[in-house]
Design a protein around this nucleic acid. Structure first.
Lengths: 121, 121
DNA sequence: CGAACAGTCAACCGATTTGTTGAATGATGA
DNA sequence: TCATCATTCAACAAATCGGTTGACTGTTCG
């Protein structure tokens, strides 16, 4: 009930698909930053940086506290956690270990039709 | 030496920023699939699906073996692992645990700029 | 008050994305 | 051989993206 609308994975991954925004997140990992502070390292206009920040906010990756004329941004980790979990599904493919479940899936595949499980998450 | 060119995180996250492509990856987690098989669940043209697959390939997320007139696709986990690692950096923000490093970072940030005057800048 | 500051908004631009359709390529198989 | 199958390619359109500039809103402060 405290949960906001879960930010769609689409928006999260899209936001992460830009190096500028990823660098902003790294910066925010070290503490709160204003919009100007976030924009400073980049050779782009403040308006452009503002758009990046709005993209991060739209993906739920940061939240903002308006304090007088400055906007304080801080990291919002939940969507990062979701993305991390999503990727975690594939962990067994890069760890050397083939467990029983994976072996089962792979063999099942060689013989049976798809399981029409229809889940994009 | 066996490593290929590391696919840029940009391309990986961008590829993941689309539900169609994520569903294709999920499908590939169950085994090899041809282009037609990957395209089948989606209400888009084969050409469009082919473009999605090229995006996945370009991000290094799949590799393809041409076998006669069909193209067999299989999951390539390395870039997923890299993305997972990148997100792992933020893990301390969503696990409750505050370790020494994080506490250090946060305090450093809170104390640095002001001239003891206060936080009203 | 009035100037300077922090930030957004709106309009615009060029490049990229995602989809379409129709033609092309190349392998398969009766 | 010839039709068919699997897939890509090329050209196009609409939407989105990432950037710009200039005007605007609201806050701070001399």
């Amino acid at each position: 009930m405290v949960e906001r609308h879960a930010p769609p994975l689409d928006a999260v991954f899209h936001a992460l698909g830009d190096a500028t925004r990823r660098r902003m997140l790294r910066e925010l990992a070290e503490g709160e930053r204003t919009v100007s502070q976030l924009a400073a390292p980049f050779p782009i206009s403040l308006a452009a940086a503002s758009k990046h920040i709005k993209a991060l906010e739209g993906a739920g990756l940061i939240r903002r506290e308006v304090r007088g004329r400055t906007h304080l941004c801080r990291l919002e980790p939940a969507p990062l956690s979701h993305a991390h979990e999503w990727l975690g599904f594939y962990e067994r493919f890069w760890t050397g270990r083939l467990d029983a479940l994976e072996r089962l899936l792979r063999e099942e595949d060689a013989a049976a039709p798809p399981t029409k499980d229809g889940d994009d998450r």
